[in-house]
Design a binder for these strands. Sequence first.
RNA 1: GGGCUAUUAGCUCAGUUGGUUAGAGCGCUUCCUUGACAUGGAAGAGGUCAGUAGUUCGAAUCUACUAUAGCCCACCA
Length: 902
Amino acid sequence: MDKRYDAKAAEAKWYPIWENNGYFHAEPSEGGVPYSVVIPPPNVTGILHMGHALNQTIQDVLVRWRRMSGFNTLWLPGTDHAGIATQNVVEKALKKEGKRRQDLGREAFVARVWEWKKQYGGTIVHQQRMLGNSTDWKRERFTFDEGCSRAVAKVFTQLYNEGLIYKGNYIVNWCPRCGTALANDEVEHEPNHGHFWYIRYPVVGSAKGTQGEPYKDYVMVATTRPETLPGDTAVAVNPKDERYAHLLGKTVILPLTGREIPVIADDYVDREFGTGIVKITPAHDPNDFLVGKRHNLAEINIMNDDGSMNELAGAKYCGMDRWKCREAIVADLEAGGFLDHIEDLDNQVGHCYRCHEVVESRLSKQWFVKMKPLAEPAIEAVKSGEVRFVPDRWSKIYFNWMNNIQDWCISRQLWWGHRIPAYTCSKCGELIVSETAPTKCPKCGASSTDGQTVFDQDPDVLDTWFSSWLWPFSTMGWPEKTDDLDFYYPTTDLVTAQDIIFFWVARMMMAGIHFMKKPPFKNIVIHGIVRDAQGRKMSKSLGNSLDPLELIDTYSADALRFSLALITSLDCDTKVDKSKFEIGRNFATKIWNAARFMEMNREAMPQEGSGGEVGRFDGQTVFGQLSPDEQHILYACDLACRKVNDLLEKYRIQDGALAVYDFFWTQICDWFVEYAKDAPDKPRAFSILRDVYWKALRLLHPYMPFVTEEVAHQLGYLKDGETILKAEFPKGLSDEEKAKLGLTEEIYDFVNAKREAITALRALRAEYKVNPAAFVKVTIDARDAATADRLRAEEANLKAFMRAEAVEIVSDGADRAMPGTLTKLGTVYLSLEGLIDKAAEAKRVAAELEKTRGFIKSIDAKLSNENFVAHAPAAIVEGQKTKRAELVENVARLEKLAKLFA
RNA sequence: GGGCUAUUAGCUCAGUUGGUUAGAGCGCUUCCUUGACAUGGAAGAGGUCAGUAGUUCGAAUCUACUAUAGCCCACCA
């Protein structure tokens, strides 16, 4: 084996082998227990970021673990066509050529986007391979591919026929830059330092004023959006507001237009806010729209698609950009004497989640999905426990949103996306919703084939999420009946970040239940967002993003995955900075070096046919009674296997990583490898080392797939053509196996206590500045003769670990004029032959005495408390008593020592 | 305005049904280049668990309030 682990070479080598040999491929026909996951499809325009890296590391850990555990495991990959995002990307490219999409025309533009997708759309799926994702690439899907498109058309048609899709003239959020409607949750509200303009609306019938004041009586209206003034069709006051009661029924003059508009009363108006008088612009404000509906007001849409003003805004403003128009209107109001004053105001302004343009509320004709009927069973599924959120607290947020759900605006004025399957008969005007283009009008009977009529398809496309919400079943072949759907639906786990619970998770729940009659997954695993070291969201504009590909280049994919797993917690966001990834890289190095150690000691391995009875390790049979250290490592290995399985079962990816890390590094490398170097029976020790190392490799594989595969082959655990991916994930040993090997908690504790003695001796060496290379004389005063005998059997081991020329083991409890440290196994003395710093030692002993006495005091307080004895469980009380006895014994020893050093 | 979450060592976080005098990694200090590994080894310092009041025999853990931070939802014109 090379001195250094070449991660790049290993990662480049293994991925294609895995993929090309179909190790990731899942087949329903192979039967067994299904475990399935669909990937949250990244945008086809996307490039891999830390969020993907975290999300997919979690999924791959779960998937590889399940696969190795014998489940028929499917992880289904794919990408999202990402309507607005993709269209924007291609439009930008066109702009560089000096063209707009309109110059190409719809068909050519869409063709161009497909062309773009073909050329660049594979970027992210190649980057996902760099991460090591074990996704079944043979099933890769795209939300806009033929099958998904068929599912979309079918779903739209069905919902329409069920009366759950309707078309209407409503206020929607409109992005002037993208030129499309947005759903409510696609609008991001951000704080804004703006102004509040106070405008006087003259009351009709009041007397003329002096110069510059055409009217004496005004109503004072405060607005943040003066440019919408030409669209006003009323001013409103609260019906209970006595200040303005006299105005009801009157009309006021809309400044700059001269139009008369009524003063109306509506509960919506807050008496306390502003002046208590609101201008009502039904076509440009969602609340005003509702007020307008209640009062039968006209709706005057004064804006064009691109955010410029139209002719209804008045000849002067027509064609002006909305911001220019704001300036112009404010100037004109001032010139006309209508502007009273301006105040600063902090409010919230909506921005497009895609391009960040300020969103306009605007009246337009759009398609909507009625959500309430779909939401109810989706709420029930989580309430009943059929579907579970991990961590559970997200269910509260889910309920909160689902209970207040609003209809979903699904039409988008884009060209890239699923065209709405709605057609209008040019002859009779009938609206026909149909999965495929109609040829005959169901109303007037006119046929398109003989030219009697033409069926015009709705120009709009559907919201991207309208295809994503079908992802768990459209990707498995729905609406066809398929084996995949039969076997893998519903999926087992859905793993995603918190930010798309509403966009995606909630809607998948609704679609799954409505169309498949079963929720699309059993567990919804929600993880946090990756943030920078200061806790800020990673973003391009802040320049604080870490590039996973760069990290893979520097530290390796295994390092990236392991470090992310180790530092991430499902309960909160993950803060990362570059240095964190050293953990994973260092760990890979450690694994490699431990492997090299075994490789270099190949001759120490038991030879074929050496035969034996006690235990079987990796097919090699060994002789003889296992030593305590050997039993300890086997016991620790068993604990680790159980722990990792248990933790992964609970989605505690981080704790699982820590458990493997600790077992590998502390138990195997720090202790057992050192033991093996001087083991009494080297073939047996190495045989055991080989066994636990192989188990550790498999425990680690879900986290670090590449280095584990590479090492497994280097060490000959696997032959060519085999893969660790399909190796069995270690479970715990059976009670029978444990009994046969003599693996007991007692022996485990004994070795831990022995290690404590070794550590204590090392501490003494460090404290007294003994040359690390020097061999010392050690005396251990065990508590009793039996323990002394036991320790004597460990003499060689103690000598090696303590770097001692002699280890004397006694149980006489005699005072020794040497520095000593108390451990569970008694007192460890280091012979310094006169070099003792009595004062320092006395101080140390005094400190320990004080600590121990304090401990005893706190236990006494408990034991003398009648309530404690009466209420606490017996085991706890007994434990306290045992502990106390030990402490008392220690105090006696310490007091003796203190006398010696006095 | 409503909801959720967090506050434990210098930093990032564990601490899952309340029960030894609170743990890990990184960082820091001291020592060590002995053939697996300096991307390493050994030892060590460092915390009155945000605050207050309660419940309890017993609280980092449960309750209330307070402070601070963050997130989500919501139409304050």
